[in-house]
Amino acid sequence: MMKNRQHIKWGFLFFFLPVVLWLFLLIVLPHLELLRLSFSKANTGKFTLDNYLAFFKEPIYWLTFVRTAGYSIIVTFLVMVISLPVSFYISKIARGRMTGALMILILVPFWVSELIRVYGWMILLRESGILNHFFVSIGLFKEPVEMLYNDITMIMGLVYTSMLFMVVPVLGVMDDLDNALIEAAYDLGASKISIWRTIIIPHCASGLVNGGIIVFMLVLGSYLTPNLMGGKNSLWFTEQIYNQIILYFNWNQGAAFGFLLLALSSLIIWVLLKLTKQNLKEVVK
């Protein structure tokens, strides 16, 4: 017994040390450093609030921040609205092998990198793009129209790139929904709308929240889609961070922006978790 216990101790350290090193060297300490730099002056390293004050003084900064947050919420909501009927169809309407085939089909595009998917949309939508070529040749448009570089296209692109992270959890809970509940409601004369409102959506709430957290975080932190499909004026907050760090080499300002973004995403996730009385552990499962 004694011997065995000693072995367990060594085994514990073998697993414990790499994990602790990973979490402290790559997660905890870097974020503390980010926080420290965000409160430091550029050259002297003295304590200052200037980096945060600049954020509130310059309308372009906080407007971008508010805009990014607002659009992220809209995108998350749109993704929820689209994912519900899609997963309902796959889980409850499609028959037999069709369900499996659709499942695979729906997952495949999302393994492809975000850059390629955005590139595909650029080829389709730009002034010399496929859709313009098509519309002009059938006479619907007189001349090509630029369909890229506006907010609506950008929102569509963000919905497209983040959809999977909602469809998968919603499909999961939709599968668990007992068909008998819907049948009973139907037999008792419930309308489709009330079946959706009182049975299906409440049942899917946990999947929607889990998906919502991941989608919101991804959209808030995305760079490629707003940069390539949205307007050219750096109006997504990650672009401001990129500009400060890579273009202006103002790391302290960039650190403050980074911390604000982190605070916003943590806050919204925390609120969502509190509202639905869940914890992060359950969400990532």
Binding site: L23, L29, G221, G258
Partner: peptide
């Protein structure tokens, strides 16, 4: 607490992970 730290990277935007590790 350690488990919470481990799953935190899933909800930290990738941009932030990048800049914080760069600065550190």
């Amino acid at each position: 607490a350690l488990y919470f730290l481990m799953i935190a990277p899933l909800v930290i935007p990738g941009v932030i992970l990048g800049i914080s590790i760069l600065m550190f």
